[in-house]
Write a protein that binds this DNA or RNA. Structure first.
Length: 585
RNA sequence: CGGGGAGUGGCUCAGCCUGGUAGAGCACCUGGUUCGGGACCAGGGGGUCGGAGGUUCAAAUCCUCUCUCCCCGACCA
């Protein structure tokens, strides 16, 4: 039996000064975690116990569809060179050398290692499909760790990888994970949503994220209030209301207007008395090359004046990350200072291969529009009557803008809302990326050599705990669902020196434990108030208070989530929990 | 990496502006009283004030450098 008086549960009366978000404050106050350095945490008894329960649920469900491995965290850097990701990951990857000077890295994910096993061992379609997973520590040297356990440099991830003979097989593996993830998060008692996610710079593949809404999150998710549409802001689309074009000014040809000192969209629109919707926003960017010695390429993006660039969408179209141009670079392309840029009168590359000229990507919202206002590429001047295709030719039209709250759903026309959320799981169709770069091949039923097609699937273990705390807390502390709480029930005698109370509390704790419940007996020599405050704080969903009413054969059961309290007879206490706790499992 | 904030007993903080030999509350130890929502009384232990250098008769306090942590941004497989 677990006796509080013998355990290390260092609760704090006050939140640590460096904690900002609720989960961080409470996990520290409740004695679950302690910080070692920025983004590096120790898990103490209660924290580890809860995480072990989460891992138990994850493992139980994953074992139904896959096989558990355990891969090294320490990888030879060569392996990452093979996949080409050593450069891509940049400084986010921890790097070190062994005593012989060999370059090693700490694993931030395990596609490379899993693929290295697959390519050596998998020979035939008869061995497929395979689903391999592990629960293991990941290391990522984040630019800015933050929010307690929400973004850290070392954490536990359940990562799974599927290998199939063809795309249809991948669909099956993907769906299995989708369903399994739903079961896992349901069992963990989370209120989550599944959203379509950005499929990365490679494009084409399908991806879903499992999200828990909380203001502490770092992701923005778009969802429809009328239908089931939900997507990460990086990926979301919306339907735009039609915009009335301006009438042609003058003879309809390009017409310069003097706009002294009016640089921003807002200023110019106001100055000219038009809506930003009739303006073109011209953004000047450069590609970021993996090899720092290679010069970037100019990328210009046109958006409707009131729209925001979505960098994830842009990088998917360009195939590379981009950064804003510096003043000098802007001068080279536009011969104009920033603030007065426009697309007209410049020779754009109409095809990606033409690398002498800058690329011009135009958001679809501008397609078919006319008589727009853009910068004149000349200080203090803008130009009217700008009409796409007549005054400039785009490299491509694409969806490049971010959805804004209040726009219409593409599916059903309903209202779209935007919430912040934390990502707890992500499933992804990888395709042939690693099979190809790392040389995994199997023979198909015709004896022909083909690449296995892969998927990868991750769950952030600590984030389940963190999201759960974010989802269920009040000023006194938090409560976890019984399935992932360190203990299901805390039994609190109000005075341990009263032999009757203490004896009864011990009996009850023993009985509940015998019935299979996870019980903590608060046998500390503390005043009742201290015990109640601590019990409220530490995330245990039920409390049994053993007080004066034992003389009547009664104790109190306190449900932390609702703060409901009612009497229960000592004789039937086990039955009470069998009824109230077990169905929740 | 850019901007902002903070480092003083275990925790939360005051003291710094205006230099004079370090404090409070909580926690901890001993004894006693108490016991249904973070008790009370008495006694006690614990800090080279993040580090280094400088100014000064004297530095937690002023100056320079540096390290660490937090927040905003950039970044985020």
């Amino acid at each position: 039996m677990h006796r509080w008086s013998e355990l290390f549960i260092p609760t704090l009366r006050e939140a640590p000064a460096d904690a900002e978000v609720a989960s961080h404050k409470f996990l520290v106050r409740a004695g679950y975690i302690r910080q070692l350095a920025a983004g590096i945490y120790s898990y103490l008894f209660l924290g580890q116990r809860s995480l072990n329960k989460i891992i138990g649920v994850v493992r139980d469900e994953m074992d139904k569809i896959g096989q558990e491995f355990f891969l090294p965290a320490l990888h030879p850097r060569d392996l990452w060179e093979e996949s080409g990701r050593a450069a891509v990951m940049g400084e986010t990857m921890f790097r070190l050398k062994d005593r012989k000077g060999t370059d090693l890295v700490l694993g931030m994910t395990h596609e490379e290692v899993m693929t290295s096993i697959a390519r050596r061992e998998l020979r035939s379609y008869k061995q497929l499909p395979q689903i391999w997973y592990q629960i293991q520590t990941k290391f990522r040297d984040e630019a800015r760790p933050r929010s307690g356990l929400l973004r850290v440099r070392q954490f536990t991830m359940k990562d799974a990888y599927s290998f199939d003979i063809d795309a249809a097989g991948l669909d099956v593996s993907y769906l299995k994970h989708y369903d399994t993830y739903c079961r896992i998060f349901d069992r963990c008692g989370l209120k989550y949503m599944v959203v379509e996610a950005h499929s990365g710079a490679m494009g084409g593949s399908q991806s879903h994220e499992f999200m828990v809404r909380t203001p502490a999150g770092e992701d923005q998710i778009v969802s429809c209030e009328s239908c089931r549409y939900a997507a990460n802001l990086e990926k979301a689309t919306s339907k735009l209301a039609a915009v009335e074009d301006l009438p042609a000014a003058g003879d309809g040809n390009l017409l310069e207007v003097h706009t002294p000192g009016q640089k921003t969209i807002e200023e110019v629109a106001k100055f000219l008395g038009v809506s930003p919707k009739n303006k073109i926003k011209t953004l000047a960017l450069m590609t970021v090359e993996a090899d720092a010695k290679v010069k970037g390429r100019a990328v210009v993006v046109l958006l409707r004046g009131d729209h925001q660039l979505n960098e994830a969408k842009l990088s998917a179209v360009v195939g590379k990350e981009t950064r804003p141009m510096q003043e000098q670079e802007i001068q080279t392309v536009f011969s104009s200072p920033a603030g007065f840029l426009g697309p007209q009168g410049i020779e754009w590359a109409w095809d990606m291969k033409d690398d002498k000229r800058p690329l011009l990507f135009v958001d679809k919202a501008l397609e078919g529009r006319k008589n727009l206002i853009a910068g004149a590429n000349r200080e203090d001047y803008h130009v009217k009557n700008v009409t796409p295709e007549r005054d400039f030719k785009a490299t491509a039209y694409a969806d490049l803008r971010s959805v804004a709250a209040g726009e219409d759903c593409t599916n059903c026309g309903g209202l779209l809302r935007i919430d912040t959320a934390v990502e707890i799981g992500h499933i992804f169709k990888l395709g042939y990326k690693y099979s190809e770069s790392m040389g995994a091949r199997v023979l198909d039923r015709n004896g022909k050599e083909v690449m296995p097609i892969m998927g990868c699937y991750g769950i952030g273990i600590e984030r389940i705990l963190t999201a759960s705390v974010e989802q269920s807390n009040d000023e006194n502390g938090f409560w976890l669902p019984p399935q992932i709480a360190p203990f299901e029930i805390v039994v609190s005698p109000t005075n341990i020196k009263d032999e009757k109370l203490m004896g009864t509390a011990e009996d009850i704790a023993r009985k509940l434990e015998a019935a299979g419940f996870d019980v903590l007996l608060d046998d500390r020599d503390e005043r009742p108030g201290v015990k109640f405050k601590d019990a409220d704080l530490v995330g245990i969903p039920f409390r049994v208070t053993v007080g004066k009413k034992v003389t009547e054969g009664t104790v109190e059961v306190f449900r932390r989530s609702t703060r409901e309290m009612h009497d229960a007879s000592i004789a039937s206490i086990t039955d009470y929990f069998v009824e109230n706790l077990r169905p929740a499992r």
